[in-house]
Amino acid sequence: MENLARLLKEHPFLHGLEDRHLEFLTGCAANVRYAADEFLFREGQESGASYLLRNGRVALEIAVPGRGQVQLQTVEAGEVLGWSWLFAPYKWQFDARAVEPVRAFALDGNCLRAKCEADHDLGYEVVKRFLYQVHTRLERTRMQLLDLYRAGG
């Protein structure tokens, strides 16, 4: 457990988090591994966790009839994958496939929700960090939407 807390502290998502909060969160965390091409989750499944990626790359995909599997974005070591557990009905909207072997911390969604409700200071810290992830993901999406490199500018 102490070892897990120390490793968690090194993940960029939790940089600078107070020790008491970190300790509190460690109770929600578990070490997980995925082999290449293994799915972390599939569209429609219940969303139970966030993944703090430590190694490897995960592709967010969706199957489009006629186009096959479309990779929307990849999420890399240092980033966080998934926050659907925050919002009802707590279901994943995409497939998440490990493109290469992945190591991550899984933060249990129910556990996080309960702890953030119990301690709003912690809740604010956690939500703020998720918001930053959403912010960068939104910027990525907007830039992709601009399709900057298409012919004819």
């Binding site: 790359r57 592709a59 995909e61 186009r67 096959g68 599997q69 479309v70 990779q71 929307l72 974005q73 990849t74 890399e76 493109v99 290469e100 910027e139 990525r140 830039m143 992709q144 399709d147 900057l148 490199y149």
Partner: peptide
């Protein structure tokens, strides 16, 4: 910016 299955690199933007 976009890729089909089979691409094992990054899908995202330069920033």
């Amino acid at each position: 910016d976009r890729a089909a299955a089979g691409w094992s690199g990054r899908v995202g933007v330069i920033t």
